[in-house]
Amino acid sequence: MLAELINPYYLQVASFVLINIILGISIYITLSTGQLSLASAGFMGIGAYTSALLTLNFDLPIIVGVLAGTLMAGLFGVIIGIPTLRLKGVYLAIVTLGFGEVIRVIFVNWESLTKGAVGLSGIPHMGREILKTLKGFGFDPQVLGLQNNQFIFMTIFLLLLFITIGIIQFFRRQNSSRVGRAFAAIKLDEQAAESMGINITYYKVLAFAQGALVAGFAGTLFAHVLAYISPADFAYHRAVEILIFAVFGGSEVIWGPVFGALFLTVMPEVLRFISEYRYMIYGLVIIIMMAVRPQGLIDVNIINWIKTKVGKRGQKHGTSNTKNL
């Protein structure tokens, strides 16, 4: 029964959904201070390449690669964040888009390290490595009645699910903390926030670095789930795709980009039966959305409405529940 339900295809799609959710969150964080950054694809690339190169060339365990890749992206976030802070709105968007392109061009031209446009193949695959390790301890997926590949995708999915839940929970908590309040204040009015004693430089760099860290993290996961990366994966198309998650789902609450990533990743799969027309529908849905709900599908009002319909229980007990989204 269990074995039949676990179809690697569904799990594969679900894994991409989860990675895209993490990417959506990365852009949500920078947006929550009112900064529009299109560098997420670049940070994703830095994370992916760092982790892939470390695990390929030095035989390091994946977890070390993932951590190093994430930190490297975060470091770049701080370095890029400090000078670009002087810019606002569309100018920031242009600079960050440029940064992403610079990163891609570096990957293309640094051939001795990155193999240029051909890309890196044979990157250790997360699920296969886990299975190999477990087999070393004498574990066999047959015990659970699962095939090898079912087990591989199952572990990837569960791992990503826990990671994603952890990240969502972290940023929900952060939103109702001092940091989150400061972000919201900066988003509403920078001058007012500064006059209230908020160190806007610090908080803006923090948001930028957090976004970079999360995007880099998603990049490392992407590399170890796909086992092959090339510079074209991190071109501006990717940046726009990530932005659309937040624009479509809404960027006011964290559930917006989460929903956007979920919906926009699953839709092309569900529409597979109309093959070449499916991306037309994708475009159409986005146009309709922009015309009807420019603020994105999910905003505070929707969340509150869902709460009154579903979550009476939380309101009776908690006090903070309505505000912390």
Partner: peptide
């Protein structure tokens, strides 16, 4: 995630 699975 269940939704994803059933949707597919």
């Amino acid at each position: 995630s269940l939704l994803v699975l059933t949707a597919c």
